[in-house]
């Protein structure tokens, strides 16, 4: 009985090791990025813009298309969507 138990344990261990050896590589790591930032705008056209502009001022005035001239040539190339 004891021998059977040892044989069975060894068999299970072998199967587990084999499974590990032939397993598919894990899929590419996910969640390397934060979820997208959400911003709510409300009001008339001009008011929507005003709120948007305040975010723009805080976040990205330095990324204007004209500032691309300051980038290395390789970064200034423009793909299209």
């Amino acid at each position: 009985m004891k021998t059977h138990f040892h044989l069975l344990t060894a068999l299970v261990l072998c199967l587990l090791l084999a499974n590990q050896a032939f397993a598919q590589p894990a899929p590419e790591a996910k969640n390397r990025r934060q979820p997208i930032r959400e911003v709510t705008l409300s009001g008339t056209g001009y008011e929507l813009g005003l709120q948007h502009g305040q975010i723009f001022k805080r976040k990205s005035v330095n990324s204007s298309p004209s500032s691309r001239k300051k980038q290395p040539k390789s970064l200034a190339r423009t793909p299209t969507r």
Partner: peptide, 17 residues
């Protein structure tokens, strides 16, 4: 799209650009 033209004016004013 006159409202959206105004929206651009608002963005410019809000950003001070």
């Amino acid at each position: 799209t006159p409202d959206i033209y105004e929206e651009i004016r608002g963005i410019a004013d809000g950003a001070g650009q």
